[in-house]
Design a binder for these strands. Structure first.
Lengths: 197, 197
DNA sequence: ACCAGCGTTGTATGGTCGTTCAACACGAAA
DNA sequence: TTTCGTGTTGAACGACCATACAACGCTGGT
């Protein structure tokens, strides 16, 4: 009749919970708070599990990175229908993509990507498919089959602007809101010769 | 005739060398490498000095933050003549502002700003004078005396775009070079109804 | 040459870090 | 109910961390 000392979970479940806890820790305290102790405490697990499921802290960080990219990848994945540029941009400026916790996570990860070669290589892969999706949507908007140099330039600029918007939303929240973000994107798009709404 | 055990420096000199060493460490290894040991080793000083001059690690980090902002603040300071918008943008896209080491430092600091209230408050101060300078230059470019809402919007967008450009230059160097950065800024400016060169 | 002031050193301390691993205990199968 | 596989625990370990501080020694002034 004594209370069980722990709950046994399916491997995927436990791994997922550790990743979620890792993201929570990153969001709250940045990369310096990303410690085995903090993560396990946040997850309600014991210290041994991070090593058991991810081989160590770096493995969990990589898994957290992949999980952080999930909402973005989901946004650009065609659900049996190619996305329009307007729809894509609306999604990228939506509350779903601009969740403050998510942005803080990115800030913490960017600082590591700049310094960790493994994470950087992985990031480059994601970045390229991300940009390709935007360039593709842009090309289609202009009636082209495949992106040309103009589309690539616009995609690069748009990604940089969105990154900057996310950054400012994190470190100077009062100065960058949804309406200013949209105004900034509108300026860029108008400069590229297209108007959405 | 024995070699001296250490060199004695003027307080300002020693403090400055510690800050420079701190920036070097941030640039190389990010915020996780920002430890007393690493910094003092990089500076050739002993461990006690950080506490002596800055009261602790946090004090040195604040000083490093201020030092990291110096090139930007210097760029927007009117040297007895108000800056034109074209000149300001040229400076912001110059090699002096786009030094890779400097960008990596920013990445490391941003992650901390998002999480550290003291740093964030300090950042907000710098950000506001930074944006004010850009808005002022924009207003003058349009023949206005004082910035209006349009100028503020453009300044906000421009800062976000530049932040994004710096970010991409750091974490995906091959994908964002000087020419793409300029193309992105040109798009934004054209969207705002002005063309520089 | 000497002295005094102060910039500098480095050890001691207590805490936290990541990793390892042998013992443990839950839960499904028999 | 008993057994067995394996998910889980947490103590042990060495390395590293930030800080404090008493002793040290360089240097400018005398």
């Amino acid at each position: 009749m004594t209370a069980p000392k722990y709950k046994r979970l399916a491997p995927e479940t436990r791994a997922s919970e550790l990743v979620q806890a890792g993201l929570r820790v990153l969001s709250r305290g940045g990369i310096t708070a990303f410690t085995i102790d903090n993560i396990c405490k946040a997850s309600g697990a014991s210290r041994g599990l991070v090593g058991h499921y991810f081989g160590g802290k770096d493995g969990l960080l990589a898994a957290c990175y992949a999980a952080a990219y999930a909402p973005l990848m989901q946004a650009i994945a065609d659900d049996n229908a190619p996305l329009t540029l307007a729809g894509l941009i609306e999604e990228l400026l939506s509350d779903r993509q601009l969740r403050p916790e998510g942005l803080t996570i990115w800030l913490a990860l960017w600082g590591e990507i700049a310094v960790n070669p493994v994470l950087r290589a992985e990031h480059l892969r994601h970045y390229r498919t991300y940009r390709a999706a935007i360039a593709q949507a842009t090309a289609r908007h202009f009636g082209r089959d495949r992106p040309d140099a103009t589309d690539e330039t616009l995609a690069t600029a748009l990604i940089a602007l969105l990154d900057g918007i996310w950054l400012e939303s994190s470190i100077a929240p009062g100065e960058m809101g949804a309406e200013r973000a949209r105004a900034a994107v509108d300026l860029l798009l108008r400069g590229a010769g297209l108007k959405l709404g």
